[in-house]
Design a protein around this nucleic acid. Sequence first.
DNA 1: ATGGTCGCTTTCCTATAGGTAAGCAATAGC
DNA 2: GCTATTGCTTACCTATAGGAAAGCGACCAT
Lengths: 118, 118
Amino acid sequence: MKKLKCDLKPNIERQLALTDAIELLSGKWKISILRSLYHSSSLRFKDLAMVSGGVTPKVLSKELQQLEENMLITRTVNNTRPVTVSYALTTHALETLPVIRALVEFGLQHRTNIKGKI
Amino acid sequence: MKKLKCDLKPNIERQLALTDAIELLSGKWKISILRSLYHSSSLRFKDLAMVSGGVTPKVLSKELQQLEENMLITRTVNNTRPVTVSYALTTHALETLPVIRALVEFGLQHRTNIKGKI
DNA sequence: ATGGTCGCTTTCCTATAGGTAAGCAATAGC
DNA sequence: GCTATTGCTTACCTATAGGAAAGCGACCAT
């Protein structure tokens, strides 16, 4: 086994941060939801269901609750009839933008790589 | 519902790339495995099991196979007794580095945010 | 012959993710 | 009274993720 020390203590912290982030953002829809909210700044429940492409209300509801628990989005009930609910990113969620961008770039790159190999 | 057009066609492509990337990298261990390989350039099966912290051989084996299928790592059987197997990143996998870095940064930030709120 | 190491595989199990379908409260329009 | 809309919730089901434990084939040392 090779040497792994270098900056051991911050490295452990970074490993924990990584697993935290993975746990937080795991799931089929969370990242797409965040991306949609980033592009539109504020979306209602039904819009999110459509924009994110195929989420069922049950699952969407659960994902939104988890994102809210983790302070990545805010939930606002509007004074309209029938009642509508708006979701928006918190400032904290802006920290996820580099993640999303990097994922998109990797995905684009991976797609061209795969095409090249066929 | 707000306007969502702007650059519609590339946007769809980016959405597909995003879901591809999420599917590719989903799972409890893949990102940590990639990070470990990035830091050590080449690791054997047992080392990965330890470094990545708690993966069972069955799961590790499966994750490694998936990463190899997607051309993110290479698998090399070494001519040693007993036989050892080395795993390393492909050049293509270097594209995942921004993702990992962004996740770590977000995780670190999130941890301090959470601490601040308690 | 016995036991150890490495890199797995196999079997078994449980918990969760996530989908389908239906319903529900509040309100409004007809 | 009937229906529609919005934002959910509830009940149900299936597939998969992922963990625990054991075994296995090849090799070597004792």
